[in-house]
Design a protein around this nucleic acid. Structure first.
Length: 188
DNA sequence: CTATTGATTGAT
DNA sequence: TCAATCAATAGG
């Protein structure tokens, strides 16, 4: 099980540390595992963050303790999954944007209705669908439980830091992190 | 109250 | 490049 200490540093540092870790989900249908290859940080003083204008019913998970999930509905169709960071009362989180499928690929293909491995988890709403994550997982504890983070055998890799994707505000901040040369990152 | 927009995706 | 589709938010 992941150590709570992981979250005892800045959100940007946590974002980098999440790269290379595994996301695991055990469901009655089966188990899925994926390596985190792309993330974005959302900070409390960041116009692009849902938490920028204070706590609301939607974003209240962001203001709770680090290490829980923040799941929200977007564009009338999709869900996105975040790992909450920083102390309770400070609204910050890391958006998981892409995973490299490791285990349970058949189940992912079934849930996504796609056969191509590249299409299973290469985007924030895609991986949510592939892993069977729903509204019910909002505020779920990610250190233990069915949906959780796990250390993986980290190979060496280079972290690339770029501008975030799909925003109308806060576009200049370099808060998107991904593993260099990994094939499974989202489209840009 | 109504209008607009969005941390996206899949089809054209 | 564009429509789908709805909740949060901005505007009156």
């Amino acid at each position: 099980m992941i150590n709570k200490k992981l979250f005892e540093c800045s959100t940007e540092e946590v974002a980098e540390k999440l790269l290379g870790m595994n996301l695991v989900h055990e469901t009655p249908e089966g188990k899925t595992v994926g390596k985190i290859v792309e993330v974005e940080a959302y900070l409390f003083d960041d116009p692009a963050s849902h938490s920028f204008r204070g706590k609301t019913k939607r974003n209240e998970a962001m203001f709770e303790n680090a290490g829980i999930a923040y799941v929200y509905f977007i564009y009338g169709n999709y869900f996105c999954f975040n790992v909450v960071t920083n102390k309770a009362g400070v609204g910050e989180a890391v958006l998981i944007r892409a995973l490299e499928p490791i285990e349970g690929k058949e189940l992912m293909r079934k849930r996504r209705n796609k056969s191509d491995d590249m299409e299973l988890c290469s985007g924030p709403a895609k991986l949510v669908q592939a892993f069977g994550i729903t509204r019910e997982h909002n505020k779920a504890d990610l250190l233990s439980g069915k949906l959780r983070l796990e250390e993986s055998t980290k190979e060496n890799f280079t972290i690339v830091r770029k501008k975030r994707v799909g925003l109308s505000q806060g576009k200049s901040k370099l808060l998107r992190f991904y593993i260099k040369n990994n094939k499974f990152i989202s489209r840009v």
